[in-house]
Design a protein around this nucleic acid. Structure first.
Lengths: 173, 173
DNA sequence: ACCAGATGATTAGGAAGCTAACTATATGGG
DNA sequence: CCCATATAGTTAGCTTCCTAATCATCTGGT
């Protein structure tokens, strides 16, 4: 270990994990810790990069995901349903919709069936925005994963799925 | 596709990816898109879960990472070095240190070598906080990855590494 | 038919990250 | 030796997310 970290992107090493575990006299598998920590670091980095990417189209990651969700649902959906499928709180959906409405990418209507409810509608302009982004967006996603062969992608999805299933265990009781 | 999403945790499907790509007449590999999107979703979910997890010890993910980084560096480091190794901005480090200092987990000293510089020092109390958290923390990390066999963990790390290397490509140009 | 409790949406306020701008100190070329 | 430029740290202001509280409406048990 020299004076410099030589590790600017914040990717921890197996050696660091090992040392931390030893420091507290634990028996944990260092590699398991490394997987968890690296996944968190990768997630955070990807998150920031996504924001930059979407900002180029005048959107944020959250707003883009909401538009896509809307388009996948024939252009309309209630805020509560959006919150559920996007995995964010209803309050967050309110904020996203306010921003998107201001730019004319979605519109809000009162629900006809439920006096409390609202319906968020994708506008022609919102739909066009998605269309404008599509080619570049999907190309970049493909580039991100381009280092993996087809069978490796399937494998990665399987492994990732088996980790994400247990995310709740991180906070459970 | 019924009325309900049956997919509350926000994990997109291959079918959705395929439909989106088809909608815009693109040639992108749906599985590649799925990998990218799932990784982003997993990262975001893990991030929130981490905050909840660390909040139980009165910390945030960022504050915890700073304390650990400090301990890995013999208990002291400059804010700039911390920013680099944590992969966050200097301004963020200032904020984290302010909070940690308020709780007595770190202290700030002026650098003896550089009149501009400062040194963040891990206090006994900060060190103790890490010690108190260790057993539970590492056990939870191990549980998170517990669905993977040892060789699968290595494989996952390799695949993840090959994706994260390309994160910059998402925003390049 | 009514009231209690559930549910939909919003608002208010907080935390963590960012960039840009500011202050103070170092450093190096002329 | 001095001034231009670079670097360290902080501050101000923005965004996104969150939880908790509020208000309106719906629903079910008596």
């Amino acid at each position: 270990m020299s004076d410099e970290d030589a590790n600017p992107g914040a990717a921890p090493t197996l050696e660091q994990a090992r040392k931390q575990i030893a420091r507290y006299g634990l028996e944990t598998d260092p590699q398991a810790v490394l997987v968890a920590v690296r996944l968190m670091a990768a997630g955070a980095r990807l998150d920031r990069a996504s924001e930059v990417h979407f900002a180029r189209s005048g959107l944020s990651t959250g707003r883009y995901r909401l538009l896509v969700d809307l388009e996948d649902s024939d252009g309309e959906k209630s805020p509560s349903q959006l919150a559920k499928s996007l995995g964010v709180s209803r309050a967050t959906v309110t904020g996203l919709v306010v921003g998107l409405e201001r730019e004319g990418l979605v519109a809000r209507r009162a629900s006809t069936e439920d006096g409390r409810g609202a319906v968020v509608v994708l506008t022609a302009r919102g739909s066009q925005r998605l269309r404008d982004m599509a080619a570049d967006h999907f190309a970049r996603l493909e580039a991100l994963v381009g280092g993996l062969a087809a069978d490796e992608r399937g494998l990665f999805l399987d492994l990732l799925e088996r980790i994400t299933q247990r995310i709740d265990a991180l906070t459970a009781e």
